[in-house]
Simulated assay, not measured.
Amino acid sequence: MIIEPSNYTYETMPDYTDAVDGAVEIPVTGEEMEIRYAHEVVYDEAHNLHLEIFTPFQMAHPERTWPCITFIQGSAWMKQYVYQKVGMIARLAQRGYVVAIVEYRHSGIAHFPAQIIDAKNAVRFLRAHAEEYKLNPSQMFLMGDSSGGQVSSVAGMTAKSGKLDEPINEESCEVCGIIDLYGAVDVTLPYGYPITLNHQKPDSPEGMLMGYDITEHLEEAKAACSKTYVNEDFPPMLIAHGTKDTMVFCQQSVDLYHALKDAGKDVQLYLLRGADHGGAAFWTEEMITVYDNFFKKCLGE
């Protein structure tokens, strides 16, 4: 087969049709999912904060846009290693979602509610750059694990109220749904962190987040607890927690679930029997399907 050089496009490029003895042909449809990765995208120049953005791409639909998940990586509110779950995140993106992992101001440089503010501003940045990252700005979600579960839930629950907010632009930070994975959602719960021996003290993870001894400021610390905001106007929530979590007591998620149910909110709770704090149990095909179905339900699909 011989072709002359030309300004070919994919549509005009001739298909190679010569028979090749011994070659195996595998047909493609153009529907195959590619994931494109944008590294260290600055979303807040004032605080030099970044996003790791994963965008699906299909050859047959190059201009297609996708729902977007803003993912808050857990770190006990300390400096995050945002690359920890990129393999898992890519699998979620493979289901047809733009996923952006958020770097927030950690507790060593800023106390609560800086982390909530940053999560909301990440959503705003993504909306403002929807065309660039091929996302649908009307189909936004918040998701996080551990301390990121607390950040994503509080950010999503207060997005419409103007509470805990310092906008970086005029975009909305509202979302269509929230997923909280084994979230540290109640810093006031006695013994809420089983292996944290200095629980609620100023040098504990939760104490560093708040900037004080929580036992001496319980009422004030409720501002960081997700169940404080159950009567706000916010979208459906999905909670998942391991029943043998050694770092964040499962009771935190159970209490939040009951508070949401009592407030008449749309909430689902998944208890992973025997699971510890995170790990592969939360990223099986079964659980990724649970998350995928939740997002689709929120979008009315």
Rank of each mutant, 00 (worst) to 15 (best):
G242A: 09
P67G: 08
A221M: 13
C298I: 13
E63Q: 14
A122Q: 03
P56L: 07
A38P: 00
A281R: 12
V28A: 11
C298M: 12
I178L: 08
L256I: 07
V185P: 03
R127Q: 12
V187H: 08
D165P: 03
I195M: 03
E25C: 00
G156D: 01
L260D: 09
D15Q: 14
E232M: 10
Q200P: 07
Y81E: 05
Q200K: 14
G30C: 06
T196R: 00
A60T: 13
I53M: 11
Y257W: 07
T9V: 04
A130H: 14
K79F: 00
F282M: 02
F141G: 02
E286R: 13
P167C: 13
Q200N: 09
Y37R: 12
I26L: 11
A130Y: 14
A224H: 02
E31N: 11
H106L: 01
R36E: 08
Y212A: 09
T55G: 05
L189Q: 12
D18S: 05
I109C: 08
E31R: 06
W283L: 05
C250M: 10
T215K: 15
Q252M: 15
L181G: 04
H39L: 05
K261E: 08
D276A: 14
E174I: 05
D165S: 14
T17Q: 09
E63L: 11
W283V: 06
E301Q: 14
F295W: 15
R127N: 13
K297C: 13
E34Y: 02
E206M: 02
G144M: 04
M287K: 13
N198E: 03
F112S: 04
Q200T: 08
E216S: 15
N198L: 01
F57W: 13
N169K: 09
P67N: 06
Y182D: 06
T65A: 14
T188A: 08
V175Q: 01
D213Y: 14
R124E: 12
A263P: 00
T289L: 15
A60C: 10
V24T: 06
R64T: 11
G211C: 05
A93R: 04
L51D: 04
F249P: 00
V20Y: 00
Q115P: 01
Y83K: 06
D292W: 14
L197A: 00
D262V: 03
S75T: 04
W77Y: 05
W66T: 03
T9N: 03
C250Q: 08
P56K: 06
D213Q: 14
L209P: 01
Y133K: 07
